[in-house]
Design a protein around this nucleic acid. Structure first.
Length: 592
RNA sequence: GGUCCGGUAGCUCAGCUGGAUAGAGCAUCAGCCUUCUAAGCUGAGGGUCAUUGGUUCGAAUCCAAUCCGGAUCACCA
């Protein structure tokens, strides 16, 4: 049990024994003691004063004395400053924690809960390569799933590939018009980039045609509809829906190029999925639900045949769920897919990692599911994240202002290589080991950069300033891990009996107090679906370790006992860093 | 206009289920490598926590209003 919780329970017990009154954890707070005061944890007494009719000093003294006397293994001292009761936790407690967990790779992870959580993330369109925004999504989704797993849930990582629709037809049409049969192979271009280039070509041509039509005296709105390339695209969409063989063949081939490209990028960044859904298979789902909704009078049919739901009573708007021609809209497909996920996996919770531009959409989706009385309605959770923007504003693929994922990864690897060569610490590495190191460091820098901020906040990425390797960064933490491993290669911790009587120095104790908190941080990050808590926490651990490292020598410790103690601290710190970084999807090197 | 989200140091961000003098990193300045990896450590300067009012013993944190920025409110996905 977490120390904070133990203190709270001890205090509740003492308060009952002293005053015969029952309090709960909500009635008073336990905080970490501020560094400028003596003690480790602090009970804030103010909220207890009125119910007990006591002065801060009287309550503090009585409670402090009772706690120390009745929990000799837990507390060694107390002091009171104003309304704050500061408690000093026994060194033996931290030492016991240390010897029990120093080599426990499951430290911080919860027992199996036998519940299943699905995390949908990534969800790309097959008409353009992945960009920086997708990276935030991928890193978030992957990490959120790992954190959920660490909290004892079974997880299913899924991806819904947006592989059909008018935007896909655009790149197909452009390819037909301009490619002269070129392929990724013939041009040695990565498949997703190859197709993306034709998507850009479409827009260039479309714009040109509109201008020409406007020059010929046609109104802008009409020009946009009448441009030949757009008409051809719309026809192609109809042909696709009709299953016209040559269209299907081209569609399959171009998508296969894109998938080859995506696979390479996913492999590179470490994204993986247990189940991939394709919109071309799911876009007809949900129609049955429309009929059921009509039968239940949740939906209403208008005269023209379109089907609607009125959400104005819930502060939202009227929303269409089926067009007058009988085809389903996006939200209807989503209802259908939600049902399919539930049917296939019997999931207890369904998490959607989707940008905050779809907050409204997801709210509507959940509300409709509730009104339909679907059993999984409450299990839907939208893990919403802010857009990644450039200093110049939003990224726009049509305007070519996107930061391409592959380009960025290449650039990060170059920076990692340059910095490593400047420092010259791994000259004995093989070419293969160096390559792996650059990959580890570059991904560590990028993932940490994108995960360390609160997901729901938008963030600005400046391509001019490359991502740092110093300070609050992934490489800083990776470096700390490598430093520890360098010590542990010289000697491993072995004799935990020898350290049980050791008196802890401030930095030793501080590190242990922080390490003890790891399980609590995993729970918090899990409850809030927020990896940034974990990123923050690991950084704090690394920072404290580096202070400790500079202040105290391990191999040349004052005594053999201290050497053993510090070796154990090194082991546990390295384990927590490696474990926590793994939950962020970041590897830590043995050397760098 | 309705709804939702954000506004904390020059910049990027923590802290937000109310608690002690608001914290990090970057940048700036001053120190620290004959000793376990200096991608490090120590210190300094830098704040009207958007504004105003309220609740409270106590507010960056909760409530209300206002200002600023963003998202969204399609028979698009």
């Amino acid at each position: 049990m977490a120390i904070q919780q133990q203190i709270q329970e001890a205090a509740i017990k003492s308060l009952e024994q002293l005053y015969g009154k029952q309090f709960t954890a909500k009635d008073f707070q336990i905080n970490k003691t501020k560094p400028e005061f003596e003690g480790d944890y602090t009970i804030v007494l103010f909220s207890l004063l009125k119910p007990l009719g006591k002065s801060p000093d009287a309550l503090g003294n009585e409670l402090g004395k009772h706690l120390v006397e009745n929990n000799a293994t837990l507390f060694t001292a107390y002091n009171i400053i104003k309304g704050f009761l500061n408690l000093t936790v026994a060194d033996a407690y931290w030492l016991q924690l240390l010897s029990a967990n120093y080599n426990n790779v499951s430290f911080g992870k919860a027992a199996a809960k036998n519940q299943k959580v699905m995390v949908e993330y990534s969800s790309p369109n097959t008409n353009k390569p992945l960009h920086l925004g997708h990276l935030r999504n991928n890193f978030l989704g992957w990490s959120a799933a790992e954190i959920i797993k660490a909290n004892g849930y079974d997880t299913v990582k899924t991806c819904i590939v947006n592989d059909r629709g008018i935007h896909i037809c655009k790149s197909m049409i452009a390819w037909q018009l301009f490619a002269n049969g070129a392929t990724p192979q013939s041009t040695t271009t990565k498949g997703d980039h190859f197709v993306g280039d034709y998507y850009v070509k479409f827009n260039d041509e479309y714009k040109k045609q509109i201008e020409e039509l406007i020059a010929a005296g046609i109104k802008k709105d009409d020009a946009e509809k009448e441009a030949p390339i757009m008409k051809a695209t719309q026809q192609m969409l109809l042909d696709w829906e009709a299953g016209k063989p040559e269209v299907m063949e081209l569609w399959k081939e171009m998508n296969s190029w894109v998938y080859a490209g995506f696979d390479a990028t996913y492999k590179r960044i470490g994204s993986n999925f247990d189940k991939t859904y394709y919109e071309s298979n799911t876009y007809l789902l949900g129609k049955k639900t429309v009929q059921e909704g009509l039968a239940k009078n949740v939906f209403v049919q208008k005269e023209d045949g379109s089907v609607w739901i009125d959400l104005t009573a819930d502060g939202l708007d009227e929303k269409i769920v089926q067009r007058k021609d009988g085809t389903s809209v996006y939200i209807t497909q989503d209802i259908g897919l939600a049902q399919q996920k539930y049917d296939e996996y019997k999931i207890d919770q369904s998490i959607y990692v989707i940008g905050d531009e779809q907050n409204y959409h997801m709210k509507v989706l959940q509300l409709i599911c509730k009104k339909l009385g679907l059993p999984y309605a409450d299990s839907i959770y939208h893990l919403s994240y802010g857009m990644v923007e450039l200093p110049t504003g939003k990224m726009k693929s049509r305007e070519g202002t996107v930061v391409d994922a592959d380009d960025l990864l290449d650039e990060m690897e170059r920076v990692a290589q340059q910095k490593t060569e400047e420092l010259g610490k791994v000259k004995d590495f093989t070419a293969e080991e160096l390559k792996e190191l650059y990959r580890t460091l570059s991904l560590g820098a990028l993932k940490f950069y994108l995960l360390r901020v609160d997901p729901k906040k938008k963030m600005i990425f400046n391509p001019e300033e490359s991502i740092d390797f110093h300070g609050y960064t992934g490489p800083f933490i990776q470096y700390t891990h490598a430093r520890i491993k360098s010590i542990l290669r010289k000697q491993k911790a072995n004799d935990s009996n020898s350290i049980q009587q050791t008196v802890l120095l401030p930095l030793e104790k501080e590190l242990l107090i922080e390490l003890e908190n790891y399980p609590t941080v995993i729970v918090q990050a899990g409850n809030e679906h927020d990896p940034s808590h974990l990123a923050n926490y690991i950084y704090t651990i690394a920072k404290t370790f580096n202070s400790f490292y500079t202040e105290h020598s391990v191999m040349n410790a004052e005594t053999e006992e201290k050497k053993q103690l510090r070796l154990f601290i090194c082991e546990l710190t390295a384990n927590v860093i490696a474990s926590g970084m793994q939950l962020l999807g970041i590897n830590v090197p043995e050397r760098m």
